[in-house]
Design a protein around this nucleic acid. Structure first.
Length: 468
DNA sequence: AGCACA
């Protein structure tokens, strides 16, 4: 009776799905008539159920269906699967509500939504996702609004927000290093928005981007990748709507690792050729002619001479000081100029001195500009001192680069050129452009160029590796 | 288990 009134009250009678009537009938079948002959919906203690049914009947059909009691973080794919038998799902919105267990699906056509409601209203099998019963009803809205933001659309470019007090201290190089663990990073741009310090990181494909996003979203950048005194920085990662970033110059704001010959931004170079511009025009992680190298996974002894051999490949090494810190070995390596240090850092950062992931270098710029070497010994050396060569005389037998140990020359640039041809020795040298085809090495004038085209496969240990 | 603000 009340049902009849409901129906009469609805002018667009034809829009009320027949199934609702069927639903009512099937509910009638289920009513405990035999046990409770006096049962009636209006008088029953189950009036709440009754009002629920009432609620359902008052729902105006919509091609949008509201689903609830979904399993946690139900995916769009699962929703589409659920709706597919009844029509074309043109839009979804999942993870709705505080518990993220509600969702909306929008059909192409109203009748398809009616079909789905009708079917499950009369079906003995409830709608299910992952074996969990899902409750369906017409949404009280006629379309899903703004379901997908760019952040939800899978793509090959990630929008990375660096969060933390010192977020701006995270250099583009560190970002490159972190994301390279998942695949070749084509381009990175950084910028400042209200959301804070952000970066767009472009991968070859959406799959790679997704693996990076999955592994890194919400994680913190390892502290050893950050300059000293920089507090925790975490990454929030979504997808970007971009598919191909435009990078005009290599700079501290943007890099194109697919094009190492791209000119360095004029604004990023001062009269001495030093890169001075940081993110947002500020000088971040100030470059220095002195590098701080920490050595991870030091399975083999890394001696002063080994370090000298490694770092002299990029230019004259003036001084080296080794010391123990945090249970590991660190070293300060002093070059005559910042450019050389930049080149060395870009080429060596994250790479291993020995094959097999042994003695991996993590390099930052030191605050020092001139080391004070009090004594030449096995931990510290001033190669600019006249007697340095004498002090260097005893060579450790395990020095893997015995032929290189006398390579120090006072000259700067000419020495740099010269070293390019002597450099390809040992494990890391094979990767760092030893064949001479490495455009980075071939073009020393690109002093701020990307460290990016060095294969990152010695870094990090893959997607599950570098982050903690 | 009951309607979304990204």
């Amino acid at each position: 009776m009340s049902l009849k009134r409901q129906r009469l009250m609805k002018p667009p009678l034809l829009l009320i799905p027949i199934s609702l009537i069927q639903s009512n009938q099937s509910i009638n079948h289920l009513l405990p008539k035999t046990r409770n002959p006096n049962f009636s919906a209006s008088k029953s203690p189950m009036s709440s159920v009754s009002s629920q049914q009432q609620f359902r009947y008052t729902q105006t059909p919509s091609k949008v269906l509201h689903l609830r009691n979904l399993p946690w973080e139900c995916t769009e794919e699962e929703l589409i699967e659920l709706g597919k038998p009844f029509g074309t799902v043109v839009n979804t919105k999942c993870n709705v509500g505080a518990n993220k267990n509600q969702a909306f699906i929008e059909f192409e056509d109203l009748n398809q939504a009616i079909q789905m409601i009708s079917f499950y209203a009369s079906s003995s099998e409830p709608a299910q996702v992952r074996g969990k019963t899902v409750y369906l009803q017409y949404s009280n809205r006629q379309e899903i609004v703004n379901n997908k933001t760019a952040a939800d659309v899978v793509g090959n470019v990630l929008l990375v927000t660096v969060e933390g007090e010192d977020a701006r201290m995270v250099s583009i190089d560190v970002l490159h290093l972190v994301f390279s663990a998942f695949g070749f990073v084509h381009k990175i741009t950084t910028f400042e928005k209200t959301a804070g310090y952000q970066a767009l990181v472009q991968f070859s494909d959406a799959e790679t981007a997704t693996s990076a996003r999955t592994s890194l979203d919400g994680r913190s950048i390892p502290s050893y990748l950050l300059p000293e005194e920089v507090s925790q920085c975490s990454l929030k990662i979504t997808y970007s709507a971009h598919t191909d970033l435009t990078v005009k110059f290599q700079s501290h704001r943007s890099r194109d690792y697919t094009n190492p010959y791209l000119p360095v931004a004029p604004s990023a170079i001062d009269s001495t050729g030093q890169v001075i511009v940081g993110v947002d025009g500020r000088k971040m992680e100030p470059e220095s002619n002195v590098l701080l190298a920490s050595i991870e996974n030091m399975q083999y002894a890394v001696t002063l001479d080994v370090l000298h051999t490694v770092f002299v490949a990029f230019g004259a090494v003036q001084k080296i000081a080794m010391f123990d810190k945090n249970g590991g070995v660190q070293a300060l390596i002093q070059y005559p100029d910042v450019q050389t240090a930049v080149v060395a850092k870009g080429a060596l950062e994250g790479h291993c001195i020995y094959e097999g992931g042994f003695c991996k270098l993590h390099i930052t710029y030191s605050r020092h500009t001139d080391l004070s070497i009090k004594v030449n010994n096995d931990r510290s050396r001033d190669y600019t001192m006249p007697d340095a060569a004498v002090a260097m005389a005893p060579q450790p037998s395990h020095n893997p680069y015995p032929g290189n140990s006398q390579q120090y020359h006072a000259a700067g640039a000419s020495h740099y050129q010269q070293q390019q041809h002597q450099q390809p020795q040992g494990g890391w040298g094979q990767q760092s452009g030893g064949q001479g085809h490495d455009p980075y090495m071939a073009a020393p004038s690109m002093h701020q160029g990307p460290g990016g085209h060095m294969p990152p496969h010695h870094y990090g240990g893959g997607p599950s590796g570098p982050m903690h």
